[in-house]
């Protein structure tokens, strides 16, 4: 089999909870004694190969967003290794990283640089992005003048048009009005068909089954099941019933 595109090896992540700001200030200079710790991930390992579509399911606080943050390079594990190869397009926080005083066009370049693209490449996708976002003349206005729907559209358009190797999608994604929502859905499906690797976060069995061939079920930071979608949801429902 090919090299994994995403690889988690015994990844653990804990958040230190400081009692108050005094404790936090002290922690700058020496390690806190017996701090309160919230374990967000416990020894999680999995490999995802190019072209796979994997659903991630679990309750709130199960560690889904921590995993996604690590894949997008925002958070880092305390123990273990996370390896991601290729461009990641995260349809999570679409307006993240925008600079409000810059124009939409400048923000396209800014976001492009953050993703490691060069000027020439961004130039080739610039028109596609502007076209998709339906911003018209607003593209040369500062982003602070945009409505929230326009910002989301621009954020989505940038992320989806960079020709990602890995696409991270949260089902609860809000992108504005119904017609644009449909356009986004179609575009996501179109990209999925081109064979990119997809990570799909959802609570809905039908939509996961529609897109994914594999699912990872997390509970309280532990990987409970990694395999086919129906079994994953069976385990998920079982654990809910126990409560």
């Amino acid at each position: 089999m090919a090299q994994p595109i995403i690889s988690f090896k015994n990844v653990s992540k804990e958040y230190i909870l400081y009692k108050n700001s005094q404790e936090r200030f002290k922690a700058l200079f020496r390690k806190p004694k017996n701090p309160k710790i919230n374990k967000a991930l416990k020894n999680v390992s999995f490999d995802i190969y190019p072209g796979e579509a994997v659903g991630i399911i679990g309750d709130n606080g199960a560690g889904k967003s921590t995993i996604l943050k690590m894949i997008t390079g925002v958070a880092f594990p305390q123990e273990g290794e996370v390896e991601v190869t290729g461009k990641v397009a995260a349809l999570l926080e679409l307006t993240a990283g925008f600079s409000m005083e810059m124009t939409g066009r400048e923000n396209i370049y800014l976001k492009g640089y953050i993703l490691g693209l060069n000027d020439e490449y961004i130039k080739t996708i610039e028109e596609k992005i502007i076209d998709f976002a339906q911003l018209g003349d607003y593209i040369d206005q500062p982003v602070r003048t945009y409505s929230s729907g326009m910002r989301l559209r621009l954020g989505f358009a940038i992320n989806i048009n960079i020709e990602p190797d890995i696409l991270v999608v949260d089902e609860a994604l809000a992108v504005g009005d119904a017609s644009f929502k449909k356009k986004c859905k179609d575009k996501i499906n179109e990209i999925i068909k081109t064979g990119v690797t997809v990570l799909y976060v959802s609570h809905n069995e039908n939509s996961v089954a529609e897109i994914c061939s594999r699912a990872i079920f997390l509970k309280k930071g532990q990987l409970i099941y990694d395999g086919d979608v129906p079994t994953a949801f069976e385990k998920y429902k079982e654990s809910k019933a126990k409560k």
């Binding site: 005083e101 370049y109 000027d119």
Partner: peptide
């Protein structure tokens, strides 16, 4: 490789400080 971006963001920083 971030020279250009640093320049862009520095400019942005000034606009933020003195805008309006």
């Amino acid at each position: 490789g971030f020279g250009k971006q640093i320049f862009l963001l520095a400019k942005n920083e000034l606009i933020k400080t003195y805008k309006g």
